[in-house]
Design a protein around this nucleic acid. Sequence first.
DNA 1: GGTGGCATGTAACCGGTTACATGATTAT
DNA 2: ATAATCATGTAACCGGTTACATGCCACC
Lengths: 187, 187
Amino acid sequence: MSQKISLLGYALMGLLHSRPSSGYELRKVFAQTPLISFSDSPGAIYPALARLEEQGLVRGQIEETTGLRRKKTYRLKAAGMRELKKWLEKPITRDDVIWGMEELSLRFAFSDSVIGEGNSIKLLKALEGQLKAYVPTLHDYLKSQGNNLPNSGRLSLEMGIRVYEAQLQWARDALTTYPSRIKVDKK
Amino acid sequence: MSQKISLLGYALMGLLHSRPSSGYELRKVFAQTPLISFSDSPGAIYPALARLEEQGLVRGQIEETTGLRRKKTYRLKAAGMRELKKWLEKPITRDDVIWGMEELSLRFAFSDSVIGEGNSIKLLKALEGQLKAYVPTLHDYLKSQGNNLPNSGRLSLEMGIRVYEAQLQWARDALTTYPSRIKVDKK
DNA sequence: GGTGGCATGTAACCGGTTACATGATTAT
DNA sequence: ATAATCATGTAACCGGTTACATGCCACC
């Protein structure tokens, strides 16, 4: 039924949502953007775009307007928009926090412009909740297992904890930057 | 020449270095360890162990001692130890910091017991240096591009920066926990 | 005329994911 | 008995990596 889309596929759709682009332009975005590691290799992007097109999620149009070199501009189709929204609005689970913070960070990055500020806040709150629940279990693990680990092993674990704590603190700070509309749109 | 080994392969060798184990035991480690996301699926671990064995890096011995159910215990061979050390001692590049912090964290976790405290410290210092150089470029990027991004996009970028800053701070703190032997073993 | 950026693709390879398969042992 | 855990594997699928291939255009 609902087709499988790779993380790269969602990233491409998210970018196409903000502006129609060619594969080359999308590659440049990946090459220049420092965070969220997507490869800018043609062997990843062009096949991914072709897959999205086959699935009817994006449309590629060759522009031959002014005798320029050929260039294929992709646009997000309605079905693509639906899939993008579905992905962004998926509930956040504990597993997402453990195995997929990178994906969550990408989802949040797109959320404002695709599903709106109110839903961004929802996403943030859910993320904060999951992190708040998860961080203590890491501390427990460290307390119970820390002595069995070699020095650098324990330190490495501590680094992981610090990273999660930083993300939690970030989520809290981020929430304060959203104007708290008196009575946020109920329901 | 020097065979290609996946990150999972190195992780397995690192664990086998500390104690010979069966595939099942290694799976349990992955299932229970909260950080560094390796799958505990048999479809990943057993083929990976088989590859390492083909490459002469580990040796698997079936234990049939007391009529128990069969169990294959793997041990790290000398060649495996060499590859493991080579991996741990590889110089750290800027690209490692951008695309492979997870791998660096794993390398550091194994470093104490495989290559010794002195080399752990070297690794840490190199990591600190790379992070110290990289973090400012992220701030520059945020300053120059932040205004072009939607709110949540900019916030997402800030999260990435916070994570790198947390890792940098961690590296500094970690270095202070190593006893500074007066005149660290020279050369 | 050569370098470098624009622009799109293909194909072999590799390894992780998912799902299936098997069977012994241990606890309820 | 039967469910859970121990224990090892196989095979199809998928998609990212790497490397190769092509050709235009601009600039010096």
